[in-house]
């Protein structure tokens, strides 16, 4: 069976762990995340008539106190750049983080995840900005870890992207 290392990236509290928690098998406690900055989970998805094991590295969100261990990104086949749609700043931070990721590992398939889509009335990302980003080449998906909307699709789509690489 194929395995792919996938990283969950994004600022603190955008919902990375929630997205992972909703659809994966977990073995390790979340305490690992605070102690070593990453927790490894797994999700098997079925794409192109094939089962693919996504080994998800849920990397502790970057904030002023904690920087991401860039070496955790080594060998990844793709990543989810997660932002919180109700906090515009998380988008800018994610794009800045993306610059550093590209420097570190080069170009690999990625999806820009606008999470917390259930909170429409507090949404801060306008559609102009969104189309601007698609024009720049981003695959964008709106998800909600709370309702589960588009979460399955998110992982399958990224898995498919890693297969065509």
């Amino acid at each position: 069976m194929l395995q792919k290392k996938i990283c969950m990236l994004g600022s603190f509290s955008v919902g990375k762990t929630s997205l992972v928690r909703r659809f994966v098998e977990s073995l390790f406690s979340e305490a690992y995340q605070t102690s070593i900055g990453v927790k490894v989970d797994k999700k098997v998805v079925h794409v192109n008539n094939e089962d693919v094991t996504l080994v998800l590295w849920d990397i502790h969100g970057e904030d002023v106190y904690q920087k991401i261990h860039m070496s955790y990104l080594r060998g990844m086949s793709g990543y989810l750049l997660v932002i919180d749609g109700t906090r515009r700043q998380t988008l800018e931070d994610a794009l800045a983080l993306n610059q550093r990721v590209m420097q570190e590992v080069g170009k690999v398939p990625a999806i820009l995840v606008l999470n917390k889509s259930d909170l429409v009335d507090r949404w801060e990302i306008d559609s102009d900005r969104e189309s601007e980003l698609s024009a720049a080449g981003w695959i964008i998906l709106r998800t909600s870890a709370k309702t589960g909307a588009s979460v399955e699709q998110l992982f399958s789509q990224l898995a498919a992207a890693t297969l065509t690489e």
Binding site: F28, V40, V55
Partner: peptide, 17 residues
């Protein structure tokens, strides 16, 4: 045993750390 891919992943994360 536990899931090998998870254990392997976590081991290398710890190594890396």
């Amino acid at each position: 045993t536990q899931d090998a891919s998870l254990v392997a992943g976590m081991l290398s994360a710890i190594q890396q750390f």
